[in-house]
């Protein structure tokens, strides 16, 4: 009986985390590209645009998730059909995560050796070709590493789903475990969360290494 609710909660956690991460990347990746290429000294410098974009990203990133969650209730209701519940929380999670993803992606792209980009320019690459064929492939290991970090961060945020009537391991630990004083459930849920984070981190590290041809 106890295992049933743990399994169910695990499913809900994955159900919240994975789509949020993927959608956050769908938005954050292009945004990260824009942040990198439009900065001063980038391949398409647009300083004013870059400053404004950076400010917006920073603004969104600085709102604590639990507050953003509450602030977004009306918008979530429109986008997801209802403001609360496991599925609805994907929306605020995504909104909260994509600026973070953008900065993460920006960081990965910044690590690409400027000389390589210059070489690509000297060969007559268009901006789009540099992004697709140079920036993204060269930054791939770092992007994978960032993806794993973002996913574990979003996973941690799902624990706050209980505040918006969502399920998952975090909710289980707080509502059943803490509030109803079933501490075994609280610990079991926490342990599973820890294992999840470990698995994601390990997989991230494995694929980062596997796709990095600078080593050996």
């Amino acid at each position: 009986m106890k295992w049933d609710i743990l399994w169910e909660a695990l499913g809900e956690t994955v159900y919240m985390t994975v789509p949020s991460t993927l959608i956050a990347y769908a938005l954050g990746l292009p945004l990260g590209v824009l942040l990198v290429i439009t900065r001063k000294g980038g391949i398409k410098p647009l300083p004013t645009f870059n400053t404004v974009l950076g400010a917006v990203v920073n603004f969104l990133r600085s709102i604590p998730f639990i507050i953003l969650l509450a602030m977004l209730f009306p918008v979530t209701r429109i986008v997801m059909g209802k403001a609360i519940g496991t599925q609805s929380i994907i929306f605020p999670l995504t909104v909260s995560a994509f600026p973070y993803v953008a900065r993460m992606v920006e960081g990965s792209f910044s690590e690409v050796d400027g000389g390589i980009i210059e070489a690509a320019q000297s060969m007559g690459s268009t901006t789009l070709q540099i992004i697709r064929k140079v920036l993204i492939p060269e930054a791939l290991p770092s992007l994978i590493n960032g993806f794993a970090i973002c996913m574990t961060t979003i996973l941690a945020y799902t624990a706050m789903a209980s505040a918006a009537g969502g399920g998952g391991l975090g909710s289980l630990a707080i509502i059943k475990g803490l509030n109803l004083r079933k501490f075994d459930i609280m610990y079991a849920a926490s342990v599973i969360l820890v294992i999840l984070v470990q698995v994601i981190t390990m997989l991230g590290a494995y694929f980062t290494r596997k796709f990095d041809h600078r080593i050996r």
């Binding site: 050796d113 000389g115 390589i116 070489a119 791939l140 041809h213």
Partner: peptide, 11 residues
């Protein structure tokens, strides 16, 4: 153009 640091695509 060729460069001092070669600037090859490392991946």
């Amino acid at each position: 153009m060729i460069f001092q640091q070669f600037n090859l695509l490392m991946q």
